[in-house]
Nucleic acid binder design. Structure first.
Lengths: 118, 118
DNA sequence: ACAACGTACAACTGTACCGTTGTGCTAGTG
DNA sequence: CACTAGCACAACGGTACAGTTGTACGTTGT
């Protein structure tokens, strides 16, 4: 679990901007859904469109954002564009977020149970 | 390195919303800066204000967002409000993001070097 | 009790971005 | 060679949110 320490402190502004920008890319439900769908493997725009139930233009747009962020990669195949996860680490990020959510919920549970037992 | 533990697939909409919301909280440079400052330990609003160089109201506002997200906790001490990191896992998130950035940059480096050597 | 300090809340403006609509482009098909 | 399918780009309206300004509340000190 490589403890990456030794980041400059305070973080230089450009780096802060990069970090925030990357988080912002993941801050849209539809993009999370797209990445989640691509967990199964590559998929075309149309397939993702059907799986998620959004307009083709919107799906294509968000895929473009993910592509610009380097999180997916595109391959043209015939008339369709096939997207694949390019950075598997995004799943670990989601995992950690889910872990945080779990922790929060369990704390809430304890508080509620504590209040109920009074 | 914790393997991905069987998350439902596709992710239910409410969970997607929660995940995206959490990422969105981290998608603002100033909030990243605040968390970075709090890496050293607790700090009051005024101290954070001086460290970052933003208005008191703005700092207080963003701290409120972090508080609502459960990433920091507040303790009133005298006239000042002292904030502390409540969820240390946010740093691991930032580390992973930095790791992704590094990977991207090194890939870019290789591409550029490959192009230059032709 | 009153003044000063530290903080949080409310209203406002500007801006960034989401989703839609319309359209152009490229690769297969009859 | 039209014609269609699949995808991306551009423009537009709506909305969410960042940052500012003004202000109210609670605490400390005189």
């Amino acid at each position: 679990m490589a403890e990456i320490r030794s980041f400059p402190h305070p973080l230089p502004d450009p780096l802060v901007e990069l970090i925030a920008g990357r988080f912002r890319v993941l801050g849209e439900p539809m993009r999370i859904k797209l990445l989640d769908c691509l967990r199964d493997g590559e998929a075309s725009v149309g397939e993702l469109q059907d799986a998620i139930g959004a307009s083709q233009q919107n799906v294509s747009k968000h895929l473009g954002v993910l592509l610009s962020a380097g999180m997916v990669s595109r391959t043209k195949r015939g008339t369709s564009a096939v997207y694949v996860i390019a950075d598997e680490s995004v799943f670990e990020l989601c995992e950690q977020v889910c872990g945080g959510l779990r922790r929060q919920l369990s704390e809430l549970d304890q508080i509620l149970q504590g209040a109920a037992s009074q």
